[in-house]
Design a protein around this nucleic acid. Structure first.
Lengths: 103, 103
DNA sequence: CGAATATATGTCACATTTGACATATCGTCA
DNA sequence: TGACGATATGTCAAATGTGACATATATTCG
């Protein structure tokens, strides 16, 4: 089972806890994915709250609509770095980020 | 003033608050650097707590001593991704990571 | 002091991430 | 239904991150 496949499954709503053993994920890997998904879904939440389209947000981030879509999906091709930079660009504080991770 | 220079200064103990205006940092940039430095110094803290050398930690992370040194220094060439993966590999939980960000 | 061990710094080939583009799919409204 | 705006997916060249190595500098201890 590839990492991409597994991140795909996660994205589709599988609970980490329930798939972890099945997929043979290490504690470390599942924590990493969990973190990424929490942060990326926070991006979508903020964007919709602000009534922005992905296109508009992309402009703000000096990126592209397609990358924003991947950002929000927690796509394997996006780094936590980019997710965090994007959150900060949207006015999120470090405290807010910590809260998201705790959520 | 380059980003590298500024991250260098930060590392050497400059307070973000005091240099921000001087260096012309945006809120976003300084938050990002602050986050990175908090997390990376946490790596050193954990490593020394466990009485590991950088060499030993490098082996655990399947990396090299020099990269561990850069990790701990918050070097501009290391990503938050790598820092977080390293923390997780050392047994840190997402909760612990959130706490570090809040600290 | 000098040897040994640990950490820092510089460099580079290779790997991964990125913005951009094309195109497909979805959702809504007439 | 079909047209339109929004979002998703696939691809790729360029940008950035990575492990590894060499080597410099600290630190510890006799």
């Amino acid at each position: 089972m590839s990492k991409q496949k597994l991140e795909y499954l996660e994205k589709k709503g599988w609970k980490v806890g329930s798939t972890q053993e099945f997929l043979g994920l290490s504690e470390e890997e599942s924590s990493y994915i969990e973190l990424k998904l929490k942060l990326s879904s926070n991006i979508r939440q903020l964007r919709t709250q602000k009534n922005l389209t992905q296109e508009q947000l992309a402009k703000l981030l000096k990126s592209s609509q397609s990358r924003v879509a991947k950002l929000e999906a927690g796509d394997p091709s996006v780094s936590i770095d980019l997710i965090i930079r994007s959150l900060l660009a949207m006015g999120t504080s470090n405290q807010d980020i910590a809260r998201t991770i705790l959520s």
